[in-house]
Design a protein around this nucleic acid. Structure first.
Lengths: 198, 198
DNA sequence: AAGCTAATTAGACACGTATCTAATTAGATG
DNA sequence: CATCTAATTAGATACGTGTCTAATTAGCTT
């Protein structure tokens, strides 16, 4: 579960997300060049060119060698190129989601979760099932009303059998329902012992 | 000499050059999701989310499966992922320079050019040297003045011995000089026979 | 030191695009 | 058919950034 920092990645892609900079890299990949030369090749002014080169440098795509008055830029991706190569695998991309408003699951229920955060199965014992339901209840806002379809959809992001989960949540009074509309109840209202399953 | 079209590449990088879209890919890499769900995960409105998903789709990074009212997006890079992986080699990047104001070299002088467009050597015979000089003359604008250092720098992008090239160009009256300032002459003024080398 | 050159930095402006609300489309439901 | 829901499209606004000119810095030359 690598904690991937997306900032450098973003810097990297932003650096490549402009035609002028792609063309700059193009010319630099041929040979090292000075700012003047690049500016005239691109048909831009030197300050503008300098600006782009700065971004490419921050992204680790080019290097700079100063030689008297001349600044020679060269295409020399630091360790980032392999990064870029490996970056698009499903596994890695999954980490970019990172700063989701993380209701981070309790350690107690880790054994029941897939690595993608979905529920592997509903624990059979009440003792283990309870924290799972607490975690699921946190998926709902206190001050909001939900239609049954919405409840199901939210639960389905965690487990295929949303109906069972929904009934359990209502059973423990974590959710309640009236005329087909559901809402979350505050913790004070929750039952902590086995509810009547009726 | 692959003619690389940079447009799709640009679309690709632009699609990845925004934090919301990186995070979208993050969530989609976990499992397929609907627009609603993604919007609430990102804390954005549905139209905005839809907008981002559109860009990701155009870039070939995600697919869409419509199921009744629901639109399920999924992380499924088309053939583009390998593209992205192979894209950063020096060789490939070099092609991005493409649409330089292309004074494309005459077929006659191809034998004297390296694959990177630099001059291998100055042809010894006048007959072969002449088209090379024509090509070099095209590197200068008609309505501009150049300092000698500028002339040298431009010529050095093509060959190490800029001094010889400069003298040749002046000899054929393709360039002329006065008080250290050079400029290009129109073709009518050029000499076509061997100039006096004085 | 004075002047010249290459490059960067500062500041202003313009263009692109991320975002929202409102309106529209298309599928499902009663 | 009328209504409801999910998604997209249209239109407006705001933020980010690409570009320019002007000013500044740093190195070389005389």
């Amino acid at each position: 579960m690598t904690e991937t920092e997306i900032a450098p990645l973003l810097r990297f892609f932003k650096a490549l997300a402009h035609e002028s900079r792609l063309r700059l890299l193009g010319f630099l990949a041929q040979r090292a060049r000075t700012v003047q030369e690049l500016a005239s090749l691109l048909g831009l002014t030197e300050p503008t060119t300098s600006h782009h080169l700065g971004l490419l440098r921050e992204a680790g795509l080019v290097t700079l060698r100063v030689e008297g008055n001349l600044h020679w830029y060269n295409f020399e991706p630091s360790e980032l190129a392999p990064l870029a190569k490996s970056v698009l695998s499903r596994q890695n991309v999954a980490h970019w989601a990172a700063q989701a408003r993380a209701e981070k699951p309790d350690r107690q229920i880790q054994n029941y979760l897939e690595s993608d955060g979905r529920l592997r199965l509903i624990p059979a014992s009440r003792k283990k099932r309870y924290p799972v339901l607490v975690w699921l209840a946190a998926h709902f806002d206190l001050d909001r009303r939900y239609r049954e379809a919405e409840v199901n959809q939210i639960l389905q992001t965690r487990y295929w059998d949303s109906a069972t989960l929904r009934r359990e949540l209502v059973g423990y009074r974590m959710l309640t329902r009236e005329k087909g509309i559901y809402w979350r109840l505050p913790e004070e209202e929750w039952l902590t012992s086995e509810p009547l399953t009726r």
